[in-house]
């Protein structure tokens, strides 16, 4: 199995790092005013080659399209988001989408807080691949450990559409994912995607706060009870 890879830190480490990361926030919360909190979130971009993962991130962070720009690399970005009273730092990790790297991909989303499953609406195969990724994420994370967003990119090429909007919507609903169609090229709903992620992350953080302790037995219950789509409400606020 992939987990037995020697380059992986032992599974124990994963839990520990998480503990560390979580506790990195606590002192800031304890220290008083709720106005100043910086949360760091890791967002991974998953999707087949050339579906526009990097372009999406680039459009969001630099508000430009990837074809014409001076930057050297675009596979790692950070973006500060201020929502209500909270400052959030999104770290966006681009990943290699080629099929041959599928087996090592789990290293990328280790410790991720959110994942964007990107597919190309003009290529049916990329949608199937996104489903595959979802299955892997479900294996790796508990449902409320990670925010998953299904993103259909390249709406500017709607004429060549192969994946119907309804089909993707239906799928997202059945898996209770956030769903959106975007275009990195024409800057359609790109910021909204990331804001939806930020909102959802914040919401989950808030849910955790009053209890101060995650209750694992409660997790699955919550999912079953409310498969609603809170993101849409959030991003419009």
């Amino acid at each position: 199995m992939d987990r037995s890879l020697s380059s992986l830190p032992p599974p124990r480490r994963k839990a520990m790092l998480k503990k560390n990361m979580a506790s990195r926030r606590t002192p800031q919360q304890e220290a008083g005013s709720s106005t100043e909190q910086t949360y760091v979130y890791k967002v991974v971009l998953l999707g087949t080659t050339a579906v526009g993962k990097s372009s999406l991130a680039f459009r969001y962070v630099k508000n430009d399209f990837r074809e014409s720009m001076p930057t050297v690399g675009c596979s790692f970005f950070t973006q500060l988001v201020c929502l209500e009273t909270t400052t959030m730092k999104l770290e966006i990790w681009d990943t290699a989408g080629q099929e041959k790297y599928q087996s090592v991909c789990h290293l990328y989303y280790r410790g991720a807080n959110a994942a964007l499953l990107v597919y190309d609406i003009t290529q049916k195969a990329t949608f199937a691949r996104a489903k595959l990724w979802l299955r892997e994420l479900e294996r790796e994370f508990l449902h409320d450990e990670i925010v998953i967003v299904l993103v259909g990119n390249k709406t500017d090429l709607a004429a060549q559409r192969e994946v119907p909007l309804e089909e993707a919507e239906e799928f997202a609903k059945s898996k209770s994912l956030i769903f959106m169609e975007t275009s990195a090229k024409s800057n359609h709903r790109v910021t909204e995607v990331f804001m939806a992620v930020a909102c959802e992350l914040l919401k989950r953080e808030r849910q955790k706060e009053p209890t101060h302790q995650p209750q694992p037995w409660k997790k699955s219950c919550v999912d079953l009870q409310e498969p609603s789509n809170p993101a849409k409400r959030c991003c419009r606020s």
Partner: peptide, 26 residues
Amino acid sequence: NPSRLMTGEDGYYFTNLCCAVAFIEK
């Protein structure tokens, strides 16, 4: 320091190196 390893640019490239080694192994 775990905060360096799990987040940030360094962490990202390190993860990539781990991926590369894992890929080479298999």
